[in-house]
Design a protein around this nucleic acid. Sequence first.
DNA 1: TTGAAAGCGGTACCAT
DNA 2: ATGGTACCGCTTTCAA
Lengths: 338, 338
Amino acid sequence: MTGIKDVAREVGVSTATVSRALRGLPRVSPDTRERVLEVAGRMGYVASPHAASLASGQTRAIGVVVPNVTRWFFGSIVHGAEELLREEGYDLLLYSVVADPAARKRLFSTHLLSKRVDAVMVLALRPTPEEVEALDRTGSPTVVVGGAVPGWSSVRIDDVETAATAVRHLVGLGHTRIAHLGGVPDPEHAGLGFSAPGDRLAGYRMAMQEAGLPIEPDWEVTGDFTALGGLTACRLLLSASTRPTAIFAGSDEMAIGAAQAIREAGLDVPGDISVIGIDNHELSEYFDLTTMAQPAPELGRLGARMLLDALHSETPLRPVETIVPTQLIVRGTTARVG
Amino acid sequence: MTGIKDVAREVGVSTATVSRALRGLPRVSPDTRERVLEVAGRMGYVASPHAASLASGQTRAIGVVVPNVTRWFFGSIVHGAEELLREEGYDLLLYSVVADPAARKRLFSTHLLSKRVDAVMVLALRPTPEEVEALDRTGSPTVVVGGAVPGWSSVRIDDVETAATAVRHLVGLGHTRIAHLGGVPDPEHAGLGFSAPGDRLAGYRMAMQEAGLPIEPDWEVTGDFTALGGLTACRLLLSASTRPTAIFAGSDEMAIGAAQAIREAGLDVPGDISVIGIDNHELSEYFDLTTMAQPAPELGRLGARMLLDALHSETPLRPVETIVPTQLIVRGTTARVG
DNA sequence: TTGAAAGCGGTACCAT
DNA sequence: ATGGTACCGCTTTCAA
């Protein structure tokens, strides 16, 4: 494996000069730089990231803590973040966080994360106060994507407002009997601490109140963010004494499940019941689902950008809460109340 | 940040002893080891992975090269691999490979990967001969999951046989007019080099021939592995002069799209046309889709296990091709031909 | 503009 | 069983 010394010897300069030349630092004559670049290229030299990390104190790696990459939302964020980070020459280390408290503690509180990455991106879940403190102590920039932590930067949609907009769309179509199919994370992730489900419920209630509409306890059901969960929950909803004429689901996958339950009951979507979701999931266009679109890959890119900015800044940046706008996409599952 | 010297000083031993004690090496008295462990724990000491890498030559990190984490299959493999690697104390570095040849070359052929990770897991895509050679030269163990490369270890299903089994299921139900909805990767990944689509097509043809059934060129259409692609392709299929009575789709998402196209045309699934897919995608149960299940997370775990075994072995292991069995799951989208 | 040399924080060999 | 110490491969003063 060719090292910096080999290149230095070949060019006839010191390793210091090679290092400077390769990293584009000043104080290298154009002529020298060119020769170094040429030789390094020819020899296929790439600096050892570990040696560089040790010497410089920078790892050029970002840790991404994710509940589950197989979920569309998380996978998309990771994808967006990876794209940007790769461009900027940063590595992405993936950490799946599991419900097991011991493993979780090991991840956050020991230096598992801190000595290995320059900054940390946490997806959706809410770290406990101890975890926040542990990460803060390391001094690494942190950002939450798809959630919020007091004192940390975050990139997310306004869950309350987005939910309210969805409900207002239904209200605008004349609906008065509107149910909420909310999300409770699946058992594997219960207790991980997500904030979106609660916020979306709050937005639902806010918009209902705003419109002077009644909130029936029977009309607040929960799925587990999956189509199957939405299906099951919606069956329950349809067996209630008075049926809603519209359903606001906290995610597209649940909305897809809800639509299925409705059809299964011999009813029409949107003829008998309108359905709206949140996400603009890959499959939503295909299902002709009305939804509140959130740009997941963009959230990932923005989060990564904030971390890089923080890393390149001389002074520590103040936490910034970036709210990314969502967009109502009207498709075929919502209609004026019959 | 507390270092090994701090611990050594506190315990009153040398850094060498601390290092040995912490890593569970022999030649440390039980008493000393206990004291070291106690102090290290109390001080919250964790060795710097970079310093350790530099000194030991091992990074304790695995690079995973993935086309796109947002696809169910890839996300699931990554998830499975991450789980196992984390348990074993290995980090997972995620590399999205894009179609851009320059970026791809940088990834494989420069030492971008090799100096940073101990081993490499490539998902589904087929590296070019130059890329294979470049990785081989580094001496890092490599494994392909969901594909195969001559001379490399791999973990995958038998795509030919799995496709044939799916077709045989249809044949067993009395179908004779069977179409294939094959996969051509979406434009973003065209040219990345996947082998599954071709193998599944071959399996389809093999089983058809075996059953003495005709292969109509019109009945071999391609989607792009998405529901929308399957929908579009299937519409085409239905407009052909003679309609098939069954469709074998190369992925569940395409199968879901196909089913939709069929219903859209006023036909019944499986009454008029049966549909079978491959994957057992998260949504398949929900869609009551008959499918050939492949255990994606398990593939990831197996791949990771092979890499770890190779790393822990004294002598280089011979390449092993692990074929994971698939399973026919009969649900509601296939039926005896009317 | 360039070079010499002292680290960075561990690991591993060789003594003891 | 333990300690001393030369590295690992690069970055970063400081001097020239």
